[in-house]
Simulated scan of single mutants.
Amino acid sequence: MTSLESPQPVAVVTGASSGIGEATAKTLAGLGFHVVCVARREDRVKALAAEIGGTAIVADVTDDAAVQKLADGLERVDVLVNNAGGAKGVQSVADADLDDWRWMWETNVLGTLRVTRALLPKLVASGDGLIVTVTSIAAFEIYDGGAGYTSAKHAQAALHQTLRGELLGKPLRLTEIAPGMVETEFSVVRFGGDQARADALYAGMTPLTAADVAEVIGFAASRPSHVNLDQIVIRPRDQATATRKFTRPE
């Protein structure tokens, strides 16, 4: 990969091939950032980068070498959006699938750690860096069948919030975005590709869209350098908690 040198501010977005990551890449490009779109799915991430005039990097955040190569290829980083993540399965703790748990922790927690640690020197060197970590309301709520995901998101949030204190005094802001129900590929992946089951989850209510969340990330990225939006919780009007939502009768 050729080193990226850009006169524009540079934003790196992980998990950019779909959903919140894709929408965020488009939003940040619209705000004047050169967006480095990072994802595993080569066709999608290259198409997105071509559409917004960004750079496509095919990489898996669970791969140490791939993340280091990403960092080595960037001369400048002003914004990092840790968006790569996801959930697998809805088993109880007693029936937990250890492979699903490993994937969730590797992707949500250690993936965020790898990318953040690798890009941190460049973010600080920018003189006005921003780290946005997309967690979830699962970072502070729990629900039956969700222990693998909620525990990973709790840990991801703890990582991010700890870093906020450790970097105090540095020219770097940290924002946690915690969405509630967003209709993306998230539930399809969680339910092993069962589209009908994923659709049923949102039946009778109006969930957030990826663009709704991306707009808030763009707002955080465009604040003055002295303004740090520490944590932003975004839920659809029809959702009160992780387990309580309003469903309209058909």
Results as ranks from 00 to 15, higher is better:
Ala125Arg: 11
Leu74Phe: 06
Phe33Thr: 02
Ile20Ala: 06
Gln156Asn: 06
Ala139Arg: 02
Thr206Glu: 08
Ala242Lys: 03
Pro7His: 08
Ala158Ile: 04
Ala242Glu: 07
Val35His: 00
Asp43Gln: 14
Gly129Leu: 00
Ser225Val: 13
Asp97Cys: 04
Val124Trp: 00
Ala39Ile: 01
Gly85Pro: 05
Ala203Val: 11
Ala65Ile: 10
Ala47Lys: 12
Asn83Ile: 02
Ala196Arg: 09
Arg117Asp: 14
Ala139Leu: 10
Ile52Thr: 01
Leu172Trp: 03
Ala203His: 15
Val90Ala: 12
Ala87Arg: 03
Lys26Ile: 00
Gln156Met: 12
Thr112Asn: 10
Met205Tyr: 08
Ser136Gly: 12
Leu74Arg: 01
Gln68Asp: 14
Leu80Thr: 03
Met181Gly: 13
Ala220Asn: 03
Val93Asp: 08
Val81Ile: 12
Arg223Asp: 09
Asp97Gly: 04
Ala118Asn: 02
Asp199Gln: 13
Gly85Ser: 08
Gly218Asp: 07
Val77Ala: 05
Val216Ser: 11
Ile217His: 02
Ala39Gly: 06
Ser222Thr: 13
Leu98Ser: 13
Arg117Trp: 13
Glu106Leu: 10
Ala196Tyr: 07
Ala178Lys: 02
Asp95Phe: 08
Arg102Lys: 14
Thr162Lys: 07
Val115Lys: 00
Ser92Pro: 04
Ile234Asp: 07
Ala242Thr: 10
Ala155Phe: 09
Ser136Asn: 12
Asp238Met: 07
Thr247Pro: 09
Ala178Leu: 10
Val36Gln: 01
Asp43Leu: 12
Glu250Phe: 14
Ile142Thr: 14
Leu28Ala: 07
Ser17Phe: 08
Phe140Pro: 00
Arg40Ser: 06
Ala178Ser: 12
Trp101Lys: 01
Val189Cys: 07
Val81Arg: 02
Phe246Asp: 13
Ala139Trp: 01
Gly180Lys: 04
Ala47Pro: 08
Gly169Ile: 08
Lys26Asn: 02
Arg41Ser: 11
Ala47Phe: 09
Pro121Tyr: 05
Ile217Arg: 01
Val61Lys: 01
Asp128Leu: 11
Lys245Ile: 15
Ser18Phe: 07
Ser17Val: 04
Thr62Glu: 14
Leu119Ser: 11
Leu74Gln: 03
Ala157Glu: 10
His154Glu: 09
Arg164Gln: 13
Asp43Cys: 11
Leu48Glu: 02
Phe140Ala: 09
Ser136Val: 09
Thr112Leu: 12
Leu31Glu: 12
Val67Pro: 01
Arg235Thr: 09
Asp230Met: 14
Met104Gly: 01
Leu123Gln: 09
Thr112Lys: 07
Gly165Ser: 12
Ala23Arg: 05
Arg76Phe: 04
Val109Arg: 00
Val45Leu: 11
Ala29Met: 06
Glu166Thr: 07
Gly204His: 10
Ile142Pro: 02
Ala56Gly: 04
Ala138Ser: 11
Leu70Asn: 00
Gly192Gln: 03
Ala203Cys: 11
Asp72Ser: 15
Val109Gly: 00
Pro179Val: 11
Arg41Pro: 08
Ala49Val: 02
Gly15Cys: 02
Ala138Gly: 05
Ala157Gly: 09
Lys170Trp: 11
Arg235Phe: 05
Glu141Val: 07
Gly86Tyr: 04
Asp238Pro: 06
Ala66Phe: 02
Arg41Asn: 11
Asn82Gly: 08
Ala94Cys: 14
Val227Gln: 05
Ala214Thr: 06
Ser3Met: 15
Ala49Arg: 00
Trp101Pro: 01
Val188Phe: 10
Ile142Met: 14
Leu130Asp: 01
Arg244Tyr: 14
